[in-house]
Every structure is written in structure tokens, then in C-alpha cells.
Amino acid sequence: MTPASDNAITLTRKDLLGLKDLSRDEINLVLDTAESFKEISTRTIKKVPTLRGTTVINLFYEASTRTRTSFEIAAKRLSADTVNISASTSSVVKGETLVDTAKTLEAMNPDIIVIRHSCAGAPHILARLVSQSIINAGDGFHEHPTQALLDLLTIRQRKGGIEGLKVVIVGDIQHSRVARSNVYGMTTMGARVTLCGPAILIPRSVEQMGVTVETDMKKAVRGADVVMMLRMQFERQRSIVFPSIREYSQLFCLTGDTLELAKKDAIVMHPGPINRGTEIAPEVADGPRSVILDQVSNGVAVRMALLYLLAGGRQ
């Protein structure tokens, strides 16, 4: 018999708002726990009773099928009850503010709230206001911590570790929360990160995050262990961010030839959904070095791990 107090592990925080806040130990804890949860998804009965009686609310102000579904599956596999609130169908349309929504939800006493919002800082508002644990599923251009954690897990699985690896992230860095979270996570875990993209889409003073910047993709990818491609969105609010799709892919599409410049065993990653032919050539996306589908399955495991580690945290 193994007493519960032995080998007890802790994530002593109420919320997961960003990867910037996590230490190396905390990241390892999440990845190790996620690893253990992977096995459950291979069983016939993909369910454990661990979070039975827990309520997880998915509060999605931005449409997202993949992330929301991933969280929902994760919660259900732990036997938690899930409630999905999407902005277009809720009282938000009637003009209810985020603050009022937060207070209303708190009064219903869920256990965990997962929030995705188009404004940076929105999860922080929630975290300040309500006693429940908040998981940031993406806030504007700021952070998308669960994505970075599943990316780190994927890299760790394929490469045996993260320390010292050369990682290149290519795309619209300015508007990418995936890039930011990954930069925080990877630099914490000791990887060497290079950001690559059009000059107009590199955020100001980003070198201060401990990364190198390169606008020439061939130079950036040379010798890389991991090549992560970001999704390119051409229309943002009122303006077009880059002259044309064709111009972008001429410079920044990951083709088989460009991939040759990376290490022989380099892996190719993408948070999805993929714009085939724009940021990644179809044969590379489907090729042997692509780990894109691993990322998806790791996503459920990582989210299960986070729900598990944060549940009960406010008692």
C-alpha cells in the first residue's frame, strides 16, 4: 500500500494564465503527469472517475473547435461535467460585460473555468475576480499556455529532452500567442530559440525574451532540431498584414527543400489548423518528420494533466 502523502506532487497555484509564470519544475510536473494520462486514451473505456462531480466551464469568446473540443474531451475522460459557453450564444451578445459574466459564473460555483478571449489580459481579470481556477486557453496575442505545453511534450517525446535543442518558430510572431508561450516555455527549459518571419511582423524588442531573430528563413532553419510553423492569417481587423499570400509563401513556406537545411532528424510542428501551401507544403505536413498529429493527441493528455493538477486547488 502506498500512502497518499508519499510522492505527492504540487502545482501550488490557483490558475494557469501563462507559461511565463511556470518554473522548469512546474513544466516538468505537467509534462510527466500528461505522459501518465496518455495511456488512458488508449484504453477501451477512456475514462477514469478522478474528477467525478467537478464542473469545468469552457468560456470561449473566440470561436475554436479544436481547443474547445480538446478541453471537453480531457474533462470528460476525467469524468468531470463540462459546460460550454460560447460568446455568440450567451448573454455576452446581450452586452453583458466580462466582469458580470465572471461574477455570474462564480455564483454558480463551478470548479474550473477555461477561457479563450480575443483580448490579452482577459483571463487575468477573471483570475482576480473569481475564486475558481482559471485556465487560459488563449488571450489575444498574449499567451496560449496549453498549446506550448503540448508542444514541449511532443518535443520531449521525440527528442528525449528539450535542453540545448535549436528550435525555429516561423510566421507572424507579432500576432501569435502560440509563439510567445512557446518562447517562454522553451527558454525556461533551456532550448535555443530563433524567431523567423517578415520584418513587419516581428514584435518590438523581442530579443529581450532571450531569442535570436532572423528574417531569412533559410538561415533560420539551418541546423534546426525543431521547426515550428505558425498559421498565417492575412486579414486582421481592418488591415492586411502582408502584401499577398503568394509573396508570403515564397519567403516563408516550409517546403521539402527548406526542410533539408535542418538536421536530418528534425521534426516539423504546427499548432493547426494548417494552411496547406501557404506556410507549409502538403508533402511536408504529411511527411515522416511531421509530428502534427502527435501534437493533437498530446493536447488532450496535457489538458487532462492540468485539470487534474488544478482541481481542488481552491479548498
Binding site: 502506498t2 497518499a4 502523502s5 508519499d6 510522492n7 505527492a8 506532487i9 504540487t10 502545482l11 501550488t12 503527469t33 501518465s36 494520462f37 488512458i40 477514469v48 472517475p49 478522478t50 474528477l51 467537478t54 476525467l78 487534474y308 493538477l309 482541481a311 481542488g312 486547488g313 479548498q315
Partner: peptide, 16 residues
């Protein structure tokens, strides 16, 4: 994951 005391304050038992 099947224990009845798993959701405890902070400390979670290590999973194998």
C-alpha cells in the same frame, strides 16, 4: 486516479 481522496488541496499523488 480511482482513489476517493485524490482531489485534495494542492497535493496530488504521483501517478504511475
Amino acid at each position: 486516479l480511482y482513489r476517493d481522496d485524490v482531489i485534495m488541496r494542492g497535493k496530488k499523488p504521483k501517478m504511475g
